[in-house]
Amino acid sequence: MQECTQAIDSYVVTGLSRYYVPDIADMVGRMYTVHGIQSLFQPAKAITGTAVTVKCPPGDNLGVKKALMAIDPGNILVVDAQGFTEWCLGGFQMLQRAIRERGLAGLIVHGAYRDASEAQAAGFPIYAKANSAWSGPKTGPFEINVPVCCGGVIVHPGDVMCASGDGIAVVPRAYARTILERLNNKPKSVGGQPDMAALQAQDAATEAYIAAIEQAGLLRRMT
Rank of each mutant, 00 (worst) to 15 (best):
V155Q: 08
R220G: 06
D23S: 15
V148Q: 04
G91C: 00
G29K: 06
A122K: 02
W134R: 08
P73K: 09
A212P: 04
A212R: 13
R173N: 15
I99Q: 06
A197F: 06
T48H: 11
G90A: 00
M222P: 05
A46R: 13
A174Q: 13
L62E: 09
A201K: 13
Q42R: 11
V109E: 02
G123R: 04
V146H: 09
M94H: 04
A128K: 07
A51K: 04
L107N: 02
Q6I: 08
M31G: 15
D72F: 03
T53C: 14
W134Y: 10
T5N: 13
A205Q: 12
A81T: 03
A216P: 09
D195G: 02
Q6P: 07
G192L: 00
A98T: 00
C162D: 07
H156S: 12
Y32C: 09
Y127D: 01
G217F: 06
Q2I: 15
A122F: 03
Q6T: 09
Q6R: 10
H35P: 10
G140A: 06
V54S: 08
L16W: 08
A201L: 13
Y209I: 03
V28A: 09
F41P: 06
A216F: 07
Y175S: 11
M222V: 13
Q96I: 00
L77T: 03
V78S: 00
T178C: 12
S17N: 10
V148W: 05
L40W: 12
T50A: 13
P141M: 14
E86Q: 01
G36E: 09
C4H: 11
Q93F: 08
G106S: 00
K55I: 08
I47R: 14
R100V: 02
G91Y: 01
I8M: 14
Q42Y: 09
A105Q: 00
G152L: 02
V170K: 15
T178P: 06
Q38K: 15
F84T: 00
D60G: 13
L183R: 09
L62Q: 11
T223R: 13
N145T: 02
R114S: 14
V170F: 14
T33P: 12
R97K: 04
C88K: 02
T206P: 05
G152A: 04
A197L: 08
C88H: 02
F92Q: 03
A121R: 02
R102K: 03
Y32D: 08
A205R: 12
V146P: 12
L16S: 11
P73G: 13
M161C: 07
A112K: 05
K138D: 08
I71Y: 05
R100D: 05
K66Q: 06
L40Y: 12
T53N: 14
A121N: 01
E101P: 02
H110G: 01
A176W: 10
I71V: 03
I8R: 10
G91S: 00
T223N: 14
A112N: 05
D80A: 00
S164W: 08
A7Q: 13
S189M: 09
G29H: 05
Q82I: 01
P125F: 01
I37E: 01
T223P: 11
A116L: 02
V190I: 14
C150H: 04
R114E: 05
A198E: 14
E118N: 04
A216G: 09
A176H: 07
Q200A: 15
A198M: 14
I99F: 10
E143W: 06
D80W: 00
N131P: 04
Q6M: 07
